[in-house]
């Protein structure tokens, strides 16, 4: 499981030629810590990290909102054609991204959002995956509490906000986490939606070490390893919410 990462880190510290040695080197003989500085200054990675962070944060906030509300409606509210409409929503997940790329780009371009954060974020605000997840989650949560609130005459939005949403923290944490990761790892959309070098994201930066004819393995791996760090921190942080979820639902 860890071998590929071991290889990544090890390679990121190797001299360019050492990568190719046979039999393969497990560890760099002389760790080249300079690779990290070299890779991260070869392109403006400071700016790229900021861009990725803004992009991913915007996407997370948008997806949390839309997934929670829509997921709640699909799971807890009765309305005409619910299942059919859900299948319609789900079907938008089945469209290959490469197809919607062009119309989406032309759209944000017409709106004057080309090369801006707004343009970058706007297309990613809804995750059908997230809606589906919330639907499943809300369905598996017992409805006693909501029914109690309903009997008290609370409005549906109030029930959603004060009763159901707090119960959904594990699912929300999951969606937030994956929304962040997806945005962070997205390569094609930021590439297409941005023009200037200052608007690129980390993933685009990593890919740019992979030239048409010439590759720089250690630099690319150094950049890739660095890019993992923020998400792993986020992951360890959201861990607590999964644990909290256990306590919340387990009290009955």
């Amino acid at each position: 499981m860890l071998v590929p990462f071991f290889w990544m880190v090890s390679t990121s510290l190797m001299d360019e030629l050492e990568v190719y040695r046979f039999p393969p080197r497990v560890l760099p003989t002389d760790p080249q810590w300079g690779n990290y500085a070299g890779a991260l200054t070869a392109r403006p990675f400071g700016r790229y990290f900021l861009n990725s962070l803004v992009f991913a944060t915007g996407v997370v906030l948008g997806q949390l909102l839309t997934a929670a509300t829509a997921g709640y409606a699909f799971a807890k509210l009765a309305f005409r054609g619910r299942e059919r409409i859900f299948l319609l929503v789900l079907s938008t997940m089945m469209v290959p991204t490469v197809v919607v790329l062009i119309p989406r780009f032309l759209l944000i371009d017409r709106l004057g959002w080309g090369d801006t954060y707004v343009g970058l974020i706007s297309t990613e605000l809804v995750s059908v995956w997230g809606i589906f997840l919330m639907r499943q989650y809300f369905r598996s949560v017992p409805r006693e509490l909501e029914d109690a609130a309903r009997i008290d005459g609370a409005s549906e939005w109030r029930i959603f906000w004060t009763v159901s949403l707090p119960l959904a923290k594990p699912a929300l944490a999951t969606i937030g986490l994956f929304a962040f990761i997806d945005a962070w790892k997205n390569l094609l959309w930021p590439l297409i939606a941005t023009r200037s070098m200052a608007m690129r994201t980390v993933e685009v930066g990593i890919a740019s070490f992979h030239g048409v004819y010439v590759m720089n393995w250690p630099y690319q791996m150094a950049a890739a390893v660095t890019a993992i760090v923020p998400i792993m921190i986020l992951f360890v942080f959201t861990q607590r919410y999964f644990v909290q979820g256990i306590q919340l639902t387990g009290f009955k």
Binding site: A67, L77, L107
Partner: peptide, 19 residues
């Protein structure tokens, strides 16, 4: 229900179903 669905639907209509 539709008040809950509105934000997601609006977006899907523009950025997914449209394309």
């Amino acid at each position: 229900a539709w008040s809950f669905l509105a934000p997601a639907f609006l977006h899907l209509g523009i950025f997914s179903i449209g394309p």
